[in-house]
Computed example of a mutant assay.
Amino acid sequence: MTTQFDLDTRELAESYDRLSDAQFCFGKLLVDRLEIQTGQRVLDVGCGTGRLAEYVAQAVGPSGEVLGIDPLPFRIEIARKRARPGLSFEIGGSDDLGRFADRSWDVVCLNSVFHWIERKAEALREIHRILQPGGRLGIGTGDKDQPNPFHAIIKEAIASVMGQVPEGAQISPFLLSAEEVRELVLKAGFSALRVESTLHSDFVDRVDDLLDFFQASSFGNFLALVPEERQPAVTVRIREELEKLRTAHGIERRFQRLLVIGERKE
């Protein structure tokens, strides 16, 4: 499966900004592990609507600089509303890192984006190039060995309607295990300071908010490989299965996330 960036809309970008609290909270944990310092230059790759970059800007202070890049214009449009001196946003992605000079950043972070990157090894080599010696890489992503339980519900719903799951029909097409991510980071020249699996858990009251989040966080790729005429039936099945998970507190989102911190030694 090739990730499609042209499926995003202004409405999906606005939904993501509204519904991405879980990813934002996980991103703050990643920032904490990176130990970002006042005055540093930080590049946020796959910044989305800029919530985490805005948070990082508080950590680096007025003497630092934060740049968020994302390949989705509608998300950058929202992010730019958060811009201020020392915090800026540009359209771009992991394939566009050649625009940056060698050793030009202190920290590069990728929160909830690494599983969307197809050419991971190439991206990591470029990140190593643009980091200062002693600079840090931070990755927050899912874990292939401990998949999000909602993914199984979605695949089963597709199979029940279509008889099979179309090849490549998955929310996170390039998801890796903790060991696979660690190996890639090491091969790119980093020393691995931390590879940590953390449990995320929260509750969502409305099933429609979950469905909207699936669509918004995948920038339209959710169910993209399901024929349009079949999508309503698949959505009904997903909604039914999600409702079965409802508790007195709402529908629990419970899944493992990987935090990976690497350092460029020289």
Rank of each mutant, 00 (worst) to 15 (best):
M1A: 15
E11D: 10
A13F: 03
S15N: 09
S15Y: 05
D17S: 08
S20Y: 09
D21L: 11
A22L: 07
F24G: 05
F24L: 13
F24W: 06
F24K: 03
C25L: 14
F26S: 08
F26A: 10
G27P: 00
K28P: 03
K28V: 13
L29P: 02
L29M: 10
R33G: 04
E35R: 10
E35I: 07
Q37N: 06
T38V: 08
G39T: 01
L43M: 07
L43V: 11
D44W: 00
V45D: 00
G46H: 05
G50Q: 08
G50R: 09
G50P: 06
R51M: 11
R51I: 04
L52P: 06
L52I: 10
A53P: 01
E54Y: 09
E54D: 14
V60F: 06
P62Y: 11
E65H: 15
G68H: 04
G68N: 00
I69E: 02
L72P: 06
R75W: 04
R75E: 13
I76S: 03
A79K: 02
A79Q: 02
R80G: 05
K81E: 06
R84A: 02
L87N: 08
S88V: 05
I91A: 07
G93M: 03
S94D: 09
D95Y: 00
D96K: 05
D96H: 06
G98A: 09
F100K: 03
R103L: 05
W105T: 04
S112P: 03
F114H: 04
W116S: 06
E118Y: 08
A121W: 01
A123I: 08
A123V: 11
I127F: 03
I130Q: 07
L131D: 00
L131G: 04
P133F: 00
P133Q: 07
P133T: 12
G138H: 05
G140R: 12
T141A: 14
H151E: 15
A152D: 13
E156Q: 14
I158T: 12
Q164A: 12
P166E: 12
E167V: 07
A169L: 02
S172I: 09
L175C: 07
L186K: 13
G189F: 09
V195F: 13
E196I: 12
E196P: 12
T198K: 12
H200E: 13
S201R: 15
D205V: 13
D209C: 03
L210Q: 01
F214P: 00
G220D: 08
G220S: 03
N221A: 01
V226P: 04
P227D: 09
E228H: 10
E229S: 11
R230C: 04
R230Q: 15
P232D: 02
P232Y: 06
V236Y: 10
I238A: 06
E243S: 05
L245C: 05
G250C: 10
R253A: 11
Q256S: 15
L258D: 02
I261W: 04
E266F: 09
